[in-house]
C-alpha cells in the first residue's frame, strides 16, 4: 500500500510529451473560441479585432430577446426538443428490454446489428430519403395514403408536418444505437436473481417489471438528466437541411437562426449573443434538473 502511494507521487513529466498535441488543440480550438465569445458583448469589427472592438454590454442579447421572432424561435426549438425527448427517450429503453428477453441467440444478435444500421447513415442522406418517401405524387408514403383514400399531401410544404417528420425520423435513426447502453446495463444483472424469482413462481413478464426495469433505473436517470441539460441544443444540420420556404415558420430554430444571421448576414456579434443566450438557458436547465434529481432520488451528476 505504502509503496503504491509513493509510486503515485513520483511525477512523470515525460507523459506530457504524449499530452502536448491534445493540449495545443485544446487551447487553440476550444479555448480560442471561448475567448471569441467576448464579441457577444462588443460591436465586433474585423479591423479592430476581438480585444479592440467596443464594449456594448448586453445590447445584443437584449436586442434578441426583444426581437419579434424571439418567441417563435424559442417555441420552435423547445417544441422539437421536448417532442424528441418524449418520443425518443423511452423507445430505446423499451427496445433494449425486449431485445434482452429474446431467447434465440442468433436472432438476438441479428436484431441488434440490424437496429444499428440507421445510425450509420448521414443526416444528408436521411433528409434525402425523407424527401423521396414523402414527395407528393411519387413518394411511397403518398402512394400508400392515396391507396387508402387519403389525400396526396405535400409534407415538406407544411409547417405542421415538420415537427413530426423531424422527430419521428430521428427516433428511427437513433433507437437501435441508443439501446446499446441499456442492453449493456441489463446484461450486468446477476442471473441468480432470475433463478430465485422463478422459484417464487414469477413468469417472464413479472421479471421484466420487477427485475429488469428497476436494475436500469440509475442508467435511465443519468441519461435523462444529460438529455434535459441539452434540451436547447437542437443541432442545426437536420433542421437546416429540412427547411423549405413553406415550413420555415416551424423549422426556424435558434441554431439555424444563428447560422443565418451570423454567417449569411455577417452579424457576428448579434449571432454570437444569440448563442450565448442559448448556452445560458441550457446551463440553468442542467443545474435545475440535477438539483431536482438529487432531491428526489440518489442519482445525480455531481
Amino acid at each position: 500500500m505504502k509503496t503504491n502511494k509513493s509510486a503515485k507521487l513520483t511525477r512523470a513529466w515525460d507523459l506530457y510529451i504524449l499530452l502536448i498535441p491534445a493540449l495545443i488543440l485544446l487551447i487553440v480550438f476550444s479555448y480560442g473560441p471561448l475567448y471569441g465569445l467576448l464579441i457577444a458583448f462588443k460591436d465586433y469589427s474585423v479591423t479592430r479585432g476581438i480585444w479592440g472592438s467596443k464594449w456594448v454590454g448586453l445590447k445584443h442579447i437584449l436586442r434578441f430577446v426583444e426581437s419579434y421572432n424571439f418567441f417563435n424561435l424559442l417555441r420552435n426549438t423547445l417544441t422539437l426538443s421536448l417532442y424528441s425527448l418524449l418520443a425518443g427517450f423511452p423507445i430505446p429503453i423499451i427496445l433494449a428490454l425486449l431485445i434482452n428477453k429474446l431467447n434465440f441467440r442468433k436472432y438476438k444478435s441479428f436484431v441488434q446489428t440490424a437496429s444499428y444500421a440507421p445510425h450509420f447513415i448521414s443526416t444528408v442522406v436521411l433528409v434525402g430519403m425523407l424527401r423521396i418517401f414523402f414527395f407528393p405524387g411519387t413518394g411511397l408514403v403518398n402512394h400508400v395514403m392515396t391507396f387508402f383514400g387519403g389525400p396526396d399531401f405535400d409534407f415538406f410544404g407544411s409547417a405542421d408536418a415538420f415537427k413530426h417528420l423531424y422527430v419521428l425520423s430521428d427516433v428511427w435513426k437513433t433507437m437501435g444505437w441508443g439501446s446499446i447502453i441499456y442492453i449493456a446495463a441489463l446484461s450486468g444483472i446477476d442471473p441468480s436473481l432470475y433463478e430465485s424469482a422463478r422459484c417464487d413462481g414469477a413468469n417472464k413478464f413479472h421479471m421484466l417489471i420487477h427485475i429488469d426495469i428497476p436494475s436500469i433505473v440509475p442508467t435511465i436517470v443519468t441519461l435523462l438528466i444529460l438529455n434535459v441539460g441539452s434540451l436547447m441544443n437542437v443541432g442545426y444540420e437536420k433542421a437546416f437541411l429540412m427547411q423549405t420556404p413553406l415550413n420555415t415558420e416551424a423549422s426556424e430554430i435558434i441554431s439555424t437562426y444563428v447560422y443565418k444571421v451570423g454567417l449569411q448576414d455577417a452579424q457576428y456579434s448579434f449571432s454570437t449573443a444569440v448563442n450565448v443566450f442559448n448556452s445560458a438557458v441550457n446551463c440553468l436547465l442542467l443545474v435545475a434538473v440535477n438539483r431536482f434529481a438529487k432531491k428526489v432520488g440518489e442519482t445525480s451528476l455531481w
Binding site: 471561448l34 471569441g36 465569445l37 442545426y236 441554431s255 449571432s271
Partner: peptide, 15 residues
C-alpha cells in the same frame, strides 16, 4: 469544461 461550454459557430468560424 469544454464539453459543456464552447465558443459556438461564429467564434470558431472567425478563428
Amino acid at each position: 469544461f469544454t464539453m459543456f461550454f464552447n465558443g459556438g459557430l461564429i467564434p470558431t468560424y472567425l478563428l
